[in-house]
Design a binder for these strands. Sequence first.
RNA 1: AGGGGAUUAGUGUAACGGUAGCACGACUGAUUCUGGUUCAGUUAGUACAGGUUCAAAUCCUGUAUCCCCUGCCA
Length: 590
Amino acid sequence: MSEPRPRHFIQQIIDADMQSGKWGGRVHTRFPPEPNGYLHIGHAASICLNSGLAREFGGKFNLRFDDTNPAKEEAEYVESIKRDVAWLGADWDGEEIGGGLHFASDYFEQMYEWAIELIKKGKAYVCELSGEETRQYRGTLTEPGRPSPWRDRPVEESLDLFARMKAGEFPDGSRTLRAKIDMASSNMNMRDPVMYRVLRAHHHRTGDTWSIYPMYDWAHGLEDSIEGITHSICTLEFEDHRPLYHWFIDAINEGRTEDGSGEWGGLIHHPQQIEFAKFLLNYVVLSKRNMIRLVKEGHVDGWDDPRMVTVSGLRRRGCTPEALRSLCDEVGVTKFNAVRDMVLLENAMRDHLNKVAPRRMAVLRPIRVVIENYPEGQTEEFEVQNNPEDPSAGVRKVPFSRELFIEREDFMEDPPRKFFRLGPGREVRLRGAYWVKCESFVKNDAGEVVELRCTYDPDTRGGSNPPPDAEGNVRKVKGTLHWVSAQHALDAEVRLFDRLFTVEAPGKATGEFTDDLNPESREVLTGCKLEPALGGRTADEPEWADGVRRYQFERLGYFCVDSDSTPEALVFNRTVTLKDSWAKQAGKGG
RNA sequence: AGGGGAUUAGUGUAACGGUAGCACGACUGAUUCUGGUUCAGUUAGUACAGGUUCAAAUCCUGUAUCCCCUGCCA
């Protein structure tokens, strides 16, 4: 079989930690979204990584909302994020890896106390510089900053001011609490970073209790510490923040001892921050700013538009959590900012769906076929395999009659030799039914072919080969077509999706990503013809954990029932096409 | 004279001083009641320049290119 997967650098770090006993054999990870938007495929990668490590090492995984900025956050997002994380199988409340659901806002009181401790230790001060002044004092990438005039004010004064900031005495933005570190540091993050700002906003969980809110750098490590996180995994842009992550926890731990006998009591837990490259994909935009524009400007129908690579969009499109997980597995974890190829996502969806999706027949662009030698009014049923990859998936019955629909593109009036489908005088197999031969065709006034007249061979019942002739020669056909009985067919709308953008890096050429939108990213087909089994869930279908019914439409691709679908008006989405080596060959002019 | 990361076939990713391997793509061919799946094969790589070493993708020096950092966002 295949080699065991090489271990990525984070696994290697944890392997070493387990060896050394650094965390007492514990592994505890977390996914810390800010509830201010929808999760996308990049977040999914982080969720898979963090929950996967917890699973692999018998550890725990927390879902933690980093809700430290009420100006941008809403409860609505909390629910969508929980739904998406659960869908991905990162079971934060389960037996196995469940570390629980947490909110940064639950720690506000504790953080506040630690902030006071830092003021008392002379490591933090209240600064009264305005936003603009703060920026000027900070210096630039190549020039050091200057100390704030408030930097050395008495501890008592800072203490008093900080309490009054909390009490809501000062207007938004008028004061900050800053860490006293190094205004000349080459690392901008260390130039007396802001720990708290005055922000008298209503918080979705704490209401109007707080008039000050902690900044990311101050809050994040403390959240990790409180939850006992061992490996705090984040993206590469936080590498510069790591010294600050350590500085804050070290500052709190100064004057503390392991046994709690220190002036300030016992040590607090000090996790390890590890950075990896975020998941990037070509042919899409992943930044929150740009995704919001896609929705707000109406380029897509919403956050769950199947063309969006949001988790909810992918789900609606028919993607499975298994496909996403195996994709993440496949691309690995590194510190190289690689742009992943969209075909990897498409292949991951095909791979999983091929194994589990029941086969059905659906004709998207129908053309009528009349079997001239099949008795009028007669009907019969064929048992057709649900999945050739999995015999245990069973069979279902498909009705056959004199008038059928086949795919318009499966007939050519004047076909090239390598076209294995129907043409005048050509014979093909109708999947699971009979072999049919095209005798003639009918055109309308516009010169379009509207109907095929065929004959069938009763000796090929079930689609099997006919018996050899008198000389022992066996007749063969090259092509097998999907079909639907006209009188039994269900009508449906089918939505085909293509890439949202026509270029790998949208906006690269002009600076405006909307210039690269693919005008044909969605095609809505109506009057599609489905076999009756697609009308509703049948007993032989798998039970999908998320309730989304998915199928392979034979020879076409993978499709799922859209959330707009009703029993009266069926709507399907195409998740991904099948690979099509004929289209590729035909496209090359061969 | 700012700092922090990164660079291995077309695209990703291993090799942790000792045979440059794997996946995807592309291209052949076989099998097939899906032009699908599966199987077999072909293709092609250590950014550059020096150095250390019996031996360098790996260690050292320099260069180039790319990404991130000057929010009271996360």
